[in-house]
Design a binder for these strands. Structure first.
Lengths: 244, 244, 244, 244
DNA sequence: GATGAATGAGAGTTCATTCAT
DNA sequence: GATGAATGAACTCTCATTCAT
């Protein structure tokens, strides 16, 4: 699992290198471009997550990255491009983490289980990246909305495929319709998102990724199995049909 | 059910009223403060939802509300207060809608079912309000985040109580621990939120509130029942314990 | 002769008005939009003339106009639009001044004479405006170049018509070809421009517009008459034909 | 006639030279300083002419010259110095071209004629240099204005001497006063400048240097002769003395 | 000698906010 | 009560210029 964003470098103590490469003040200068760029992306993800796209200022990003603003522009062109680069990197990292954890030949429930664990583990490790993908993604009106929406859709698609696979593992009778599967996928992803936020929130029990995944599996898997085998919940005493 | 935001007034042709209340130019003046304020809030919700908090401009809000900018400030103090007022109004309306639909004495599944239906119906009817609550409000580290967090907590609490009630309806054996209940509640709320967004998204099947609620009930209720009776999912072939 | 730019207001002491309209500091606020706009244009013409388009800063313009920068943007949109407005105003004023001085029914030489006097008088009175038209106009690469070029062309066209009229007043024989007339017009305008600059330059005799016009008439009119009647200068001892 | 700017080197494929002076990459290194400097000046003249002083960027100049930016600074100190060097080189080249064409012992009209032809030929051959001298340099109140002003004064002085010589060739009667001569010289130079711009402009007849010079001689020489012999134009019906 | 890496300073532009009528 | 006039502060972005290798 090679995740670009694993190599966080913000504020990280740089490799000392030979004596003389440090200034008296301790600030290392003249890093290779690749390293600087990663530092900037790290800082940008953090600031974008904390403030939102509009409220984030390039000044703050540059300062957090430990470079001057013009350098950010030199390497990453504009605020919009910078944001796009952040989104792409974080989405890619998350997808990598999840797909790497899912063995294609395992049974459906094992795949879901492993995928969920990887998802919760990754979002717990990269809360800022997850904040970017889950919150900023839905903000309307900004020029990058389509990009984010597409990356989010990729995640939903993976889950959709998982559920569809589950259906195929089971018998055919009463299999849910396509739009039901789609709805389920969104429900599952939403539940996972919410749990990720809850698990990472400072208040509360701070459960591990495994516990969180188990909680979700407990409630979702049986429900899924039920659904797949055609059983549905129905109101025992059907409510009056007044509401939409 | 008296929801403030039901009485949308943006751009609506005002009731003419007695002669003399209109100017020659056709613009109605001297509306009662309450009405003006609602107009402003309606406009603000729309603009905030469309653009996001930072990108929304007071100019656009004032223009959409049909009033001058200083009046907006006279009534609502500042952009931040205005946003807070929007959030409070929309949150209150949503809570009202949901709680009004839940009969306290009904069985647990009926309460959940009715609550979900009301939730999906309301969010579908007030997409701007829902966009505010679900997206814009979470983004910013700004001072209104607590308001939204509180609303969300209220909803989670309601659901938590529902689940707890379900547990009590069932026997005691294997009842989930408190933190499990909490996690379940968050999962359920997240699933509902995600479904609401999906159901309202322009792409896709545009299911009715009832269908959406059914989708969620199908997967969640059986899972809940299972959980309540102490059954858990567990990996049939336990994966190697390498991950957290 | 009603020239917009005659009513210069930069730094002008504003009409006092009733007591109480001045602040203690003496700065008058809340002028009608029209007045403020003229102030800004005056300041902009001065700064653009002094620094050139690119080197002129909106800060300096705003300060010279005695207003804040946002007001300049509120009224005049952008630097480019502001420059365009300056060019248009100054070109219009110059054209007005010249055409107003030329009686259409007068003989050709009288028209040229009066036109030149008006030209020199106006450029002497509005050196900044003239600097804008004559210098900035030729700067390449800027987005407004076509506009300035067109306005400059209008001036050349007026002179061209004057010369053509002179030709018609004279007999037909040996009348100069069209492209010769065009060249003459450019030569005359260039001479006038140069004289205007010389007449306004701090060094030297500071001749009046009338004297300047006389100097130009002395050399140009006889030349013109000669040309019109078909006489040309030719090298008495023709130089070897090696040069282009 | 040795004009520095004749040896244009921009983008020119350098003479290969002995093996070993090229790198593997094909880029020639270690050119003699003189050559490098000329390349830079050529590039700078082109970019300054195209964009104007302020809009020209050192990046673009360095790139066009095919060298790195620090090298430009090493050789030419600063943007301002670089611009000054361009102006000086182009001004020197123009003066050389004109003075080389004027035989000191020829009669006055021949000297004027040859000088004008050389002027128009040179400006036509070096449009960028001429653009620099005629437009960019006048605009700015910056420190290189004196350089251009001095060049211009040199030209005016030459013309002034020509006119004075013409006066001496003719009789003394009615010879123009000194300030008249000065004015005439400015008018002539301005006319020539304007014609140079017109002759080089993309629109229009694109006349040759000889034709352009002839056009100017036709109108100016007779005027000069007239003036020298004391004849003046005067309004046949003197206009009312209302204007300055 | 030549250059990739880096920046201080300042540009145009926008916006929430407040007077003074 | 309602508004046209006005601004301080901040933002994105660019550029001439210099190190350190």
């Amino acid at each position: 699992m090679t995740l670009a964003s694993d190599a966080r470098t913000v504020q990280a103590a740089p490799a000392p290198g030979p004596a003389g490469r440090r200034r008296a003040g301790g600030k290392v200068r003249r890093m290779p471009r690749e390293v600087r760029e990663r530092q900037m992306l790290d800082a940008a993800v953090e600031v974008f997550a904390r403030r939102g796209y509009r409220a984030a200022s390039m000044d703050e990003i540059a300062e957090l990255a430990g470079v001057s603003k013009p350098l950010v522009y030199l390497y990453l062109q504009s605020k919009e491009e910078l944001f796009g680069a952040c989104i792409r990197r974080e989405a890619h990292a998350l997808m990598e983490a999840v797909t790497a954890a899912v063995e294609p030949d395992a049974p459906a429930d094992a795949r879901l289980w492993n995928g969920l664990r990887a998802f919760f583990a990754h979002t717990a490790d990269h809360p800022d990246g997850w904040a970017l993908l889950s919150c900023q993604a839905r903000t309307h009106g900004e020029p990058f909305t389509p990009v984010v929406a597409e990356l989010r859709q990729q995640i939903v698609d993976v889950v959709t495929r998982l559920i569809a696979a589950t259906c195929e593992d089971a018998g055919r009778a009463g299999a849910p319709a396509d739009h039901e599967v789609s709805g389920l996928a969104h429900a599952l992803v939403g539940a996972a998102e919410s749990l990720a936020g809850w698990a990472n929130s400072p208040t509360g029990a701070q459960p591990s990724a495994k516990e969180t995944a188990a909680t979700l599996m407990d409630v979702a898997w049986v429900g899924l199995e039920n659904l797949v085998s055609g059983r549905r919940w129905s109101p025992t005493a059907p409510p009056p049909e007044d509401a939409p």
